[in-house]
Amino acid sequence: MEYFLQLFFGGLTRGSIYALIALGYTMVYGIIQLINFAHGEIYMIGAFVALIVAGVCTIYGLSGVSILILAGVIAIIYSCAYGYTLEKVAYRPLRGAPRLSPLISAIGMSIFLQNYVLLAQTPDFLPFPRLIPDFDFMEPVAHIIGSPELVILITTVVTMILLTLLIKKTRVGKAMRATQQDMNMARLVGVNVDRIISLTFIIGSALAAIGGVLVASYIGQVNFYIGFLAGVKAFTAAVLGGIGSIPGAVLGGLVLGWAESFAAGYISSDYEDVFTFGLLVLILILRPAGILGKSHKQKV
């Protein structure tokens, strides 16, 4: 039972990180129908910037929690800046081009950013400082769920609530939903579509940065390549839940997290990725639009 709970919470933590990254994919896809392949790299850059800020702060003698906050905030700012620039440089000139063009551009951008970080910093794994302290009150349950897991879960839940409020309650959120439903119609009623698309990239990047900082301090190391697999997994989560749907991304992330955790715990950890993609294929065969996705009838 204890083992089961351990796996359960492990899967939950992992799944909530996937969900954070998957939200960026699903929001961008919902609006411009593009798989933003470079999204995983934004997540990696977030983690890297946090690492650098934390390193500089430690050397200049700042302490514990202030480092965590400073590193987190600067990482989010930079990820947003990268996300914004990415859209402006690589995707905006391709608006209206055939579907495959922006996708190739995205793959190119992903390779570019990976190698940019590789050259600017280092190809090696860097140790990431443990920014999240161990809480005393977690002591009795620490063998099932540790403090880092708790922090990750709480941060994720708070972020999700904020995101939901933003999308459901604010003017900007309304404009985003309008753009998602029909870009031309949104333009006709006075929505600045270009700005909404930029904003979507910025929000998605911020979520990815939060995920990046949390994961890096949880796992404890960072290199230029971590974004790729995380990106692919998160995209899988988004597809699982039904791409374009925000609750779907969260659900997909959790399902994926649990599936991986239990499969690795009870069957074999070597074949973790096989289970991930096996699950994906299975769900897509049964429900081609994903768990929560609506299947659109194509009309002629």
Partner: peptide, 12 residues
């Protein structure tokens, strides 16, 4: 690095 950049530029 150049390879990635070339892919993007080519598409644009």
């Amino acid at each position: 690095l150049a390879f990635g950049a070339a892919m993007v530029l080519m598409m644009i």
